[in-house]
């Protein structure tokens, strides 16, 4: 029997985004994927550990395919992963997505209302689409989906 060497998890890494409403959407979307949509297969990391942690965190992108979820074009999650750990497999820029979706409403970074939660759900579903593609393509061994 061939030994299974493919990663069992997908890394979904949110930027911290405290300053921006899109950053809050990024964090909430990643949590929704972890808790509600793909809990068995998703792993994450507190992004500032790339700099503050031990070198273990810097193995992240070497161990699992990473989807970087950024609030804006500054792309902190994607660029930090590339700087400290390795290439990301996919990247989402929420500000660009919202433009694409025609969202022009003023959003709150601190008090997400129905709209911000709807957008977080929508971003979460985008992330899920990417995870499911990895499973279909055999990029990850999907033994733990729920």
């Amino acid at each position: 029997m061939a030994l299974e060497t493919r990663p069992k998890f997908v890394g979904v890494l949110s930027c911290s985004g405290e300053e921006e409403p899109e950053g809050t959407i990024a964090r909430n979307a990643v949590r929704l994927v972890m808790e509600k949509y793909r809990p068995g297969i998703t792993v994450s990391l507190c992004l500032p550990l790339y700099l503050a942690g031990d070198s273990g965190e810097q193995e992240f992108a070497k161990r699992v395919p990473v989807i970087a979820v950024d609030g804006c074009e500054k792309a902190c999650a994607r660029l930090s992963t590339e700087k400290y750990s390795g290439e990301v497999s996919d990247a989402i820029d929420i500000r660009a997505l919202l433009r694409q979706w025609g969202v022009e409403d003023e959003l709150s970074r601190s008090h997400p209302r129905e709209l911000e939660w709807e957008l977080a759900e929508r971003v979460a579903r985008e992330i899920v689409r990417i995870i499911d593609r990895y499973i279909e393509e055999g990029k990850v061994a999907a033994t733990n989906t729920r």
Partner: peptide
Amino acid sequence: TLCLALLTL
């Protein structure tokens, strides 16, 4: 406030 990730970067 300031996005902490900018400091990481």
